[in-house]
Design a protein around this nucleic acid. Structure first.
Lengths: 372, 372
DNA sequence: GGTTTTTCTCAAAGCGCTTTGGATAAACGG
DNA sequence: CCGTTTATCCAAAGCGCTTTGAGAAAAACC
């Protein structure tokens, strides 16, 4: 049957009353009224049956459910949202930088984790891709167009203005990460980046390394700042003065990992170990180590932060890189759970989850080579 | 001012009529009626002014626009969607495999590209993350709940049932890739994978390589099947019989790239070149080559398909890997453009875009080593 | 049997927008 | 100066759903 004739068919039905079931069968999308007509019930009853209200007999509800399923009925989200005030969607904004071409690789896994939870509760994700300069506008639009029930804030930096904005807009939100110091006044899920890097640095120090380089993410990002703090704190605790030459921050790409590592290895007193903020950056660093004719794990040690991305797994058995691991997918799940919980049950208390990373010793680390 | 007092303020306004402007100022979300009241116009006129209808004087329109902006007015998407029948959102479904943990890494870049186009036209992305087994249901739900105006189909495999389904649901859709043979009967944007891999294989053959291995994606995927076809065709054109031992297909992870390359290199007659379907897989292959004590570009050549992912760039100047490049982000843009075009201007003709990859010679290829 | 409860069902009023069909005021022509 | 057009603006209906306030039917009570 052709699409167009099918549509006509459904229109025909609306003007007639006989032979209802047969005609309905072929309608492309069914409305509540049509379903009610088929069932010989009122719209109210059908709606109540479907939404689990107690005022309807179990037998009736069962029948309604079955017929609805058979006809593939589903309420129009817009109408439902309009009537209930909920839109059953969570907003995520991905800013596209105007300066560089980077798309956050962590995003896919995070969304996968969050999505698991959302779909369990019938929520969808409303994704808005905007130039970073008008990211705030995206939230304003979410708010004033009432298209979402809550949002997740990605990649916060120090004193991120989005937080104040979302508060003023009174949108439920959870931050993936933290934004500077005022961390009591909003909901967040974060990795203990400071502690994670402190411990990783100590691990390298314990292996005898003295010249430890830090290949970090952009320090405008809160997580990167915290990682550096942990790194510096560990060094200072052993009376080692952090060396600016061994600290670099930037986009966490393979390319930059390569370039920066290469440059450092060419110094007169090169590092014997690298602490690297991401897997892709570490792959670049490894390439630089190879290029310098050195062997990772023997001449140069590498410890990374591993987000446990599904397509860049850090080995299956023994980790390729010694790593502080914290699965971003799990963070996605936790953020989603927290947000849905807040939406379902708003109360004045702020929720926080601080995740500890897991140190996994792999093949990329070894004792510091003997100095000559 | 506290949030709660602000809400009260806005409620107060609704019951009074005096001093309208002052009070409106503090309402959290403004409705059309309120905006009309402020302006001293009817809702109709305001709506027309905002939506660019000609029946309103330019001066009036300008005034309406300004006041709307000042008060950050935006139409409720749900109400607007209900009234217009459009929902200004495009559906994307990401299936989460129940068998393995893989999240498609290409997805982030694709979305970024598509998002650029969407946001230009005021569209959002409605993302549904579902277990792959009920992916079809997700489309059904999109359709019957009328929450999207069109969808993009990701990662098609041979005779993908989603295509027939979407046709029957009469949802405008564009496929990123193709699904088997019936390619005239739907809209798609695809890379010429067959030709791309044929050419890449020829390139290696021209360098004197005879034992060329193929590390491919899952052959249930259409793109992987086409790549193998191109590879085999090139070999057969030079009277080389494709060797099953040198062909492997699977998830395109670093880990599998490593494992499969390692195994092949341990064969009695190992390959002198690899053709690899993705960057992450190639990174694994490279690791295997290093582990085998060989040098990429000298002992073993590698050619990859490069999606030009923003966080795994294939070098900036000279490519790390010799590659057939086709930016997935650009594919995202093209898919989005095509889809919006179809939605805006539905006609019976199907649209197709076949992209040719660009062969970029990098440092990973060289003449075949002399046999002994 | 009549009255009260309990159970089930319904009609109608919104939710916030667009859009149709008219009304009003301004401009025009004779 | 009056009828006619044209430029503006408006009231009200409708989009498909939820939900309130009530009514009918069935069951329970005295």
């Amino acid at each position: 049957m052709l699409g167009s004739s099918r549509v006509n068919y459904s229109l025909t039905f609306l003007n007639e009353t006989s032979n209802v079931e047969d005609k309905i069968e072929s309608a492309l999308i069914m409305k509540l009224k049509e379903l009610a007509d088929i069932l010989g019930l009122s719209q109210t009853t059908v709606s109540r049956a479907l939404n689990g209200y107690p005022e309807v007999r179990e037998a009736t509800r069962k029948r309604v459910m079955e017929v609805a399923l058979a006809h593939n009925y589903k309420a129009d989200t817009r109408a439902k949202g309009l009537a209930t005030g909920r839109s059953m969607a969570i907003g995520h904004v991905i800013p596209l930088s105007t300066h560089h071409e980077m798309v956050n690789p962590v995003f896919a896994d995070f969304i996968a984790g969050a999505g698991e939870i959302y779909s369990r509760d019938g929520y969808d994700i409303l994704l808005s891709v905007v130039a970073d300069v008008d990211e705030e506008n995206a939230y304003r639009k979410f708010s004033s167009s009432r298209s979402i029930d809550g949002v997740i804030v990605h990649g916060p930096h120090a004193d991120d203005p989005r937080i104040a904005l979302l508060k003023s807009l009174e949108i439920p939100f959870v931050v993936h990460g933290r934004a500077g110091d005022n961390e009591e006044s909003y909901n967040w899920v974060d990795v203990n980046n400071r502690h994670s890097f402190l411990r990783a640095t100590e691990f390298l120090l314990d292996l005898g390394h003295k010249r430890i380089a830090l290949l970090n993410g952009l320090e405008s990002m809160d997580f990167a700042r915290r990682r550096r703090e942990g790194y510096c704190a560990a060094l200072e605790a052993r009376d080692i003065l952090p060396d600016q030459i061994l600290m670099v921050s930037g986009e966490m790409t393979e390319e930059l990992g390569f370039r920066n590592a290469k440059q450092m290895l060419a110094e007169s007193s090169p590092p014997t170990a690298f602490l690297v903020s991401s897997m892709s950056m570490a792959i670049g660093a490894r390439r630089a180590i190879d290029d310098a004719g050195k062997k990772m794990g023997r001449d140069v040690s590498v410890v990374i932060h591993d987000d446990d991305l599904s397509y860049l797994k850090n080995g299956s058995d023994i980790p390729i890189f010694t790593a502080a691991r914290s699965a971003v997918r799990q963070a996605g799940r936790l953020c989603a759970e927290m947000l849905l919980e807040i939406i379902a049950n708003p109360d004045p208390e702020y929720r926080h989850i601080l995740l500890e990373s897991e140190l996994m010793v792999g093949m990329s680390t070894g004792p510091a080579p003997i100095q000559d």
